[in-house]
């Protein structure tokens, strides 16, 4: 089943083309890496998929619904979650409160001036934290966590929305090498368990080749090659993009 279908989206900023007629598909349960040099258009693509930006042309479908004109909350309700390149958590909250916030937002319980937020959705939050191995940290402030743990909290928040598709912008950036492998193994395990599709960008090629079912290679807003890791590795266009020889 196709979870995500991107049909020829383009986007330009003040004349410069950031995305040029990009099309691809993502099947249920598939884990796809989107790679490419800085400025290739990966973050722009994510922002469009998650409703923070509108494409100039082209369409995006999540399941059967066309999301090209939807805002973020509507896209979230369709089950598209997101994590950021620099982990964005609410740093004046505890770990558990961060996850509770995500759960409350997902269930539309935020317009409530009376209940004590700290008591709501606590059990569900703890369950999610347990799955991510973060239960022991539930009462700690996010501001004192290690970066790797912060990334896990962010992941828990994304999962709180019960997504069918997870967009992860450089999930392992800023982490120590060992933490990276652990985190990505965790993401893959959760994805398989929850039948979750994952689209992620990543600079660490060990991670990409170890975990992606398929790879999309972007350069200057264009998809220049895609396929299984072995296919992409063998593609001369991909090698050129990475070794910089295409410039001369």
């Amino acid at each position: 089943m196709t979870i995500l279908r991107v049909e020829g989206i383009s986007k330009s900023y003040s004349g410069a083309l950031a995305l040029d007629n990009l099309s691809f598909e993502l099947q249920a349960g598939e884990i796809i890496a989107m790679i490419g040099p800085n400025g290739a258009g990966k973050t722009t693509c994510f922002n469009i998929l998650h409703g923070q930006l509108r494409a100039d042309s082209g369409q995006v479908f999540v399941g059967d619904a066309c999301t090209s004109r939807m805002d973020t909350p509507a896209i979230l309700r369709l089950g598209v979650g997101r994590t950021f390149q620099i982990a964005a958590t609410f740093h004046s909250f505890t770990v558990a409160e961060n996850v509770q916030m995500a759960l409350l937002a997902r269930r539309g319980l935020l317009w409530n001036l009376h209940s004590q937020a700290g008591d709501l959705c606590r059990k569900e939050a703890d369950q999610l934290l347990e799955q991510l191995g973060m239960l022991a940290h539930a009462a700690r402030a996010c501001s004192v966590l290690s970066y790797g743990d912060l990334k896990r909290v962010e992941l828990a928040m994304a999962l709180a929305g019960d997504p069918i598709l997870l967009l992860m912008d450089e999930p392992t950036a800023g982490m120590a090498p060992r933490e990276r492998l652990q985190l990505m193994a965790l993401v893959v395990r959760l994805a398989r368990e929850r039948k979750l599709s994952v689209l992620f960008t990543e600079h660490d090629m060990d991670i990409v080749f170890a975990h992606a079912d398929r790879i999309l290679l972007l350069e200057q807003g264009r998809l220049i090659c895609q396929g299984t890791p072995a296919m992409v590795r063998a593609d001369p266009r991909a090698q050129r993009a990475y070794l910089g020889d295409n410039r001369d």
């Binding site: 970066y147 950036a173 800023g174």
Partner: peptide
């Protein structure tokens, strides 16, 4: 070195 809690360089 790194940015905030994010580490980029290690030893």
């Amino acid at each position: 070195a790194g940015y905030g809690p994010a580490r980029v360089l290690f030893d």
